[in-house]
Design a protein around this nucleic acid. Structure first.
Length: 324
DNA sequence: GGAAGTCAAGTCTTA
DNA sequence: TAAGACTTGACTTCC
């Protein structure tokens, strides 16, 4: 990426050659905060297990239906605002992967197909990021089983939407259990031997801020042809030895490309004034800049508390995707 | 309508 | 040992 800064007419003028999509995660602050609250639009309606027991499985499934309907409204909003990339909330279908209370998403197939069609019509990329409970390297078999179920649930959702290879599922390496090398081997084995093909095809690994650096994951990723999502913020907190962000993204994007998937990476900034490690891990409300050395042709997920507003602010700063 | 307490799941770090 | 961080607060109860 090349950046030019000037101050013509006293207005900061920052330009970039970046031409990928900027996206945001899970929640649209404008639609979520609509008043009255009954008009709020969001995809993370959920419940408690007690409520499932009380109200029954169809009631939970109806929450998922509402979430999916609202996702279409969010996509429409994004299109009106020139945003064409977002992460779908893992809460779309509450408890769908639960061992006891789980359920198939086929009841919602027509609606999910509609969502996928809308996304395709607008060239809108949809991805997912299963949670921290997804531990493919756990020493406990039950945890690995639950993790695979969680991946299968996300994959079923994307498959029913008819979303292509760009609809990736991003997870972290997870815990190290006191032996990173042995855990990486377990992760490798689980990916290679235990994941259904459609799940493995969407799987992507991401460096995190405490355990696995990009350098830790790249050999495994290259070997198994599993792309790597590079998170710039995590890398500053937990740096990859011997590799610059530019070198990492080059290698990571090469795996994406040979898999026929558009590269995507993550970007966020720490809160202003954050000093301690805990503070620095937290995401800021907005981002002040795009990362240095950003390749032009990839998508970038902006992880910031202000969600779509952070994306729109970057549009303004860099003069991106402005209407003519 | 708002406040407080609670909620499926895992792991690690810091206070 | 408890709290807080992570991809994301939302639900439930009580006032």
């Amino acid at each position: 990426m090349s950046i030019e800064r000037g101050h013509a007419h006293g207005i900061p003028d920052v330009q970039t050659t970046f031409n990928g999509r900027l996206g945001y995660a899970c929640l649209n602050t404008v639609l979520r905060n609509k008043k009255p609250a009954s008009e709020a639009v969001f995809c993370s309606r959920t419940c408690r297990i007690n409520s499932i027991k009380k109200n029954g499985i169809d009631w939970v499934k109806n929450l998922g239906r509402k979430n999916a309907q609202d996702l279409m409204e969010i996509i429409e909003w994004n299109e009106r605002n020139n945003i064409r990339f977002m992460r779908i909330s893992s809460d779309m279908f509450p408890f769908a992967s639960h061992e006891t209370y789980g359920y198939s998403l086929t009841y919602c197939a027509p609606l999910l197909a509609q969502v996928g069609d809308l996304a395709k019509k607008y060239g809108h990329r949809l991805t997912v990021h299963p949670g921290q409970f997804t531990q493919l390297g756990s020493l406990r078999e039950g945890v690995v089983r639950s993790s695979i179920r969680e991946l299968e649930y996300h994959c079923e959702m994307l498959d029913l939407m008819g979303i292509g290879p760009d609809g990736v599922m991003v997870i972290h390496g997870g815990g190290v259990y006191g032996d990173k090398k042995a855990t990486l081997e377990r992760i490798r084995k689980t990916i290679r031997d235990d994941l259904p093909k459609n799940v493995r095809n969407r799987l992507v690994l991401e460096n995190d801020e405490v355990s696995y650096t990009a350098a830790d994951l790249l050999p495994l990723c290259a070997d198994l042809d599993v792309p790597l999502v590079f998170d710039y913020h995590h890398d500053t907190l937990n740096p990859s030895r011997g590799l610059t962000p530019a070198e990492i993204t080059e290698q990571a994007n090469a795996i994406f490309r040979r898999r026929g998937i558009k590269p995507k990476q993550h970007y966020s900034e720490p809160r202003e004034g954050a000093i301690s490690i805990m503070e620095r891990r937290a995401h800021s409300n907005r981002c002040q800049s795009l990362p240095a050395g950003l390749p032009d042709d990839m998508d970038l997920m902006i992880e910031a508390k202000d969600k779509e507003q952070a994306v729109l602010q970057l549009y303004r700063i860099y003069n991106l995707h402005r209407d003519p």
